[in-house]
Amino acid sequence: MQRVNMIMAESPGLITICLLGYLLSAECTVFLDHENANKILNRPKRYNSGKLEEFVQGNLERECMEEKCSFEEAREVFENTERTTEFWKQYVDGDQCESNPCLNGGSCKDDINSYECWCPFGFEGKNCELDVTCNIKNGRCEQFCKNSADNKVVCSCTEGYRLAENQKSCEPAVPFPCGRVSVSQTSKLTRAETVFPDVDYVNSTEAETILDNITQSTQSFNDFTRVVGGEDAKPGQFPWQVVLNGKVDAFCGGSIVNEKWIVTAAHCVETGVKITVVAGEHNIEETEHTEQKRNVIRIIPHHNYNAAINKYNHDIALLELDEPLVLNSYVTPICIADKEYTNIFLKFGSGYVSGWGRVFHKGRSALVLQYLRVPLVDRATCLRSTKFTIYNNMFCAGFHEGGRDSCQGDSGGPHVTEVEGTSFLTGIISWGEECAMKGKYGIYTKVSRYVNWIKEKTKLT
């Protein structure tokens, strides 16, 4: 034993070699072989497995989906700052455009905790909710729209109204504003409101030439003092309507412009014939205590009207009353817009006519005020429907199939267009061939041609 100890002390290297040989010859039971080890760690190889990531292109799944990435790591994937920024906006807080917040056709661009709407022409605001041009839906104005110097929408209202708090709607500024039905039992019968379409306001006024200088022999019209197929109006439903009495009662109609003036057809009036105007009328054979009678003290036909040349060209006249009318729910003026808007309103496509005229061709006159909704007829169809001249200051309205029309005794009465609950004068009943005849239409004086003249002559002093 002493000898062994001496050998170990003198030859430590020998001992180490012996131990190493023993270990190498022993069977290893701690580690699995290569094949079995792979069965336990069965993990798919990654895209760049075996390579240094710093030297390969980034992978979106590896960089940002398996674990949260930084902007720089995302930049490695896209290799483009702009594309990385677009991805980053949604990656950080989701897609803010998912709810489609942009209105009126706006395009949404996502941002971090926010979004941006790219608005089409005519709109602005956070969600493109603000109209900035009158060309689109009248700028959301209830009545009139004008573009300011910086191309912003400025709404306005006709006389007797003021802008509401929203700067879009119009509200009454006087007790009985024009064009409004205020009798409670008839307010439910107000005709369907007309909503502004998209309009090209630059070209809204037709490029028409008034044929002022045409000389033409007097034409022989049949029954051209021209509501057939209409309905009984309720008291106060058309408070701007008046009836004219002269040699015979209810020979023509008219509309209240203001307390002192009536507008009617020029062919209705004769110099030297006494005319009485009755406002607030409903049943011409009954006294309903809503009527107001006034005498006409002055007749002003349009300066281009000449019955000797043509009885229905420039067929418009103004009547001055001896005493002002007292405005109330049964006696209310009709609204008159400017030339541009009167023309736009007419193009809405349908209007209402009213009167006490004959209820059928050569038949009896109506006792109760009649009204009828009539569609506008395109000019080409209008011209083809008659052998008589249709001037540019006239328009056609009615039904091709016949059966409904204005008729004798309705002449001078109103053709009105309702705009968001307020009625505007767009025409004056003038003439036609018979009444409600198939293929024939009622012919009306186009008020847009005469609004400046009306307003100039009827100013209240």
Rank of each mutant, 00 (worst) to 15 (best):
V243D: 01
Y444C: 03
C155Q: 00
F388T: 14
T186A: 11
L24Q: 03
F360R: 14
S220E: 12
N222A: 15
E86N: 15
E320I: 00
K457D: 02
G125I: 00
E433H: 13
F55G: 10
P172R: 06
F224P: 14
P177L: 00
D110T: 06
G349A: 06
K39F: 08
E86W: 07
S49N: 15
T386F: 10
F348W: 09
I210L: 13
I299E: 05
E231S: 08
S354I: 12
L325Y: 03
I7R: 15
L163V: 10
F345Y: 13
D33H: 09
L24G: 04
V183C: 04
P44F: 06
S99P: 09
K260M: 06
T389K: 06
G50W: 06
G398K: 06
P197K: 13
S406R: 12
E281W: 11
D212T: 13
K126Q: 15
K274N: 12
V374H: 02
H282W: 12
L319V: 07
D223H: 12
N5Y: 10
E231P: 10
T287F: 09
T290W: 11
C157Y: 01
A380C: 05
Q216T: 11
V353N: 02
L32V: 14
D111I: 07
M65W: 07
P44Y: 10
T85Q: 09
K89I: 06
G349I: 02
G409I: 08
A266D: 02
N328L: 01
H302I: 01
T16D: 03
Y341N: 11
V181F: 05
F345D: 01
E82K: 11
K45D: 14
F251E: 07
K126N: 13
K68H: 14
P101F: 02
Q167C: 05
L103D: 06
L130K: 08
I256C: 00
L32I: 12
S49R: 07
W356D: 02
G363E: 14
G409K: 13
S11R: 13
G253S: 07
S350T: 13
G427V: 01
A26N: 03
I262D: 01
E72L: 15
S411N: 13
M65T: 15
E79S: 15
H267P: 00
G398V: 04
L20M: 11
T194P: 08
S329C: 05
R62H: 04
S70D: 06
R226L: 06
T276G: 06
L189K: 12
E285R: 12
V181C: 06
G349E: 04
H34T: 13
H34M: 10
F399Q: 14
V447Q: 00
K347A: 12
S350H: 14
N5I: 13
Q2V: 13
D322Q: 06
M65P: 09
C134A: 02
P175K: 12
P101E: 02
C117P: 01
V248E: 08
L372P: 03
L376D: 01
V174N: 06
A308K: 11
V183E: 11
R404T: 14
K168H: 12
L20H: 02
A436D: 12
K440H: 14
S406Y: 14
E124K: 04
K457L: 10
T381V: 12
F71W: 10
N245P: 03
L20Y: 05
